[in-house]
């Protein structure tokens, strides 16, 4: 099991009666880009904070880099973990260079490590400006540079593309791929599938504090049952015949049924044929990853 850099077992966080994160069993393979997806309020930030022991779980365990992450171990483990949670850090009254200089002092890093981190996020020409004058994208990149300066084994980024323009988003994507190629495991959250879809090699999908899916993109496609489309002479009558048993919609003259197993498909077809309806075609429609994501998360809050 040592191939996982982060694992959680039955990880739960409750505020009062309400479980914000519930029974989460994350498995983050070493060296991957793990896309942590979920609508706003689904518990992504809360989970990431528990991975860093910024907040303590109500129940369940977190293991990071092969060790339990607790208040007793966190200071040791955090030296090998870079993170950016919720909003980017930075002291507005100081320049970018002064800000990252603080990180160098606090962590006893070498200037070489700082320069490398700054060049990686392409901020070398902005370091003499005060952080107060930075755009959001520049703040995010400085925050990532601060997280990278310690040359972490694991990078945890919470919605790093939030508020960025398409060029900024593409820049972050390229950066994440570059880091993963260099052997860093990256866990990155987003509420928009499109932002990390092509970058992530493993996906975890969260909704309402529960993990709905975890695996590769290919596994996600396989897990989702494509809709069944039926072409018939009288779609209205077919719909009426199936009402009560199946939720059939009429879509561009075709009958659309979702979540239908192969057996159920056979039953539906024989039912319609016995009722004397002519069936012209029966096929399954491939879904886009976006549709799968929307189906899983109920499209809520996006």
């Amino acid at each position: 099991m040592s191939s996982y850099i982060v694992t959680t077992d039955h990880l739960t966080k409750r505020y009062g009666e309400r479980a914000v994160v519930e029974d989460l069993n994350l498995r983050v393979p070493e060296g991957c880009v793990y896309g942590f997806l979920g609508p706003n309020g689904s518990g992504k930030s809360t989970t990431m904070k528990m991975l860093l022991s910024l907040i303590r779980p109500s129940s369940g365990q977190v293991r990071v880099l092969g060790e339990p992450m607790t208040r007793a171990t966190r200071r040791r483990l955090l030296g090998r973990i870079g993170s950016l949670i919720e909003s980017p850090p930075g002291y507005g009254h100081l320049t970018g260079a002064e800000n990252i200089g603080l990180v160098r002092r606090m962590l006893d890093l070498e200037q070489r490590q700082i320069d490398l981190a700054v060049r990686t996020v392409r901020m070398q020409d902005q370091m003499d400006k005060k952080v107060r004058e930075y755009s959001l994208g520049m703040k995010q990149r400085l925050g990532i540079a601060m997280a990278l300066a310690r040359q972490p084994k694991l990078l945890i980024l919470d919605e790093p593309t939030n508020g960025l323009d398409p060029a900024g988003i593409e820049e972050i994507r390229r950066l994440l791929r570059h880091l993963a190629d260099g052997g860093v495991t990256v866990m990155v959250s987003s509420h928009l599938l499109g932002e990390i879809d092509k970058t992530a090699t493993t996906l975890g999908i969260l909704a309402g504090g529960r993990l709905l899916f975890q695996g590769t993109r290919a596994e996600l496609f396989a897990a989702a049952t494509p809709d069944v489309l039926i072409g018939t002479a009288d779609p209205q009558r077919a719909q009426a015949l199936l009402s009560g048993q199946h939720d059939a919609r009429i879509d561009e003259g075709l009958l659309r049924l979702c979540g239908l197993s192969p057996d159920a498909t056979a039953q539906v077809v024989s039912h319609l044929v016995r009722a004397g309806l002519g069936i012209y075609e029966v096929r399954r429609q491939e879904q886009s990853l976006e549709d799968v994501f929307m189906d899983l998360t109920g499209g809520g809050g996006l």
Binding site: L52, L54, R75, L78, L84, I85, S87, P88, P89, G143
Partner: peptide, 18 residues
């Protein structure tokens, strides 16, 4: 004051400093 702003608190508490 500055530690309570933006992401500074999370960043401060995510360092290996005791």
């Amino acid at each position: 004051r500055a530690e309570h702003r933006g992401g500074n608190w999370n960043a401060l508490m995510s360092t290996p400093v005791s």
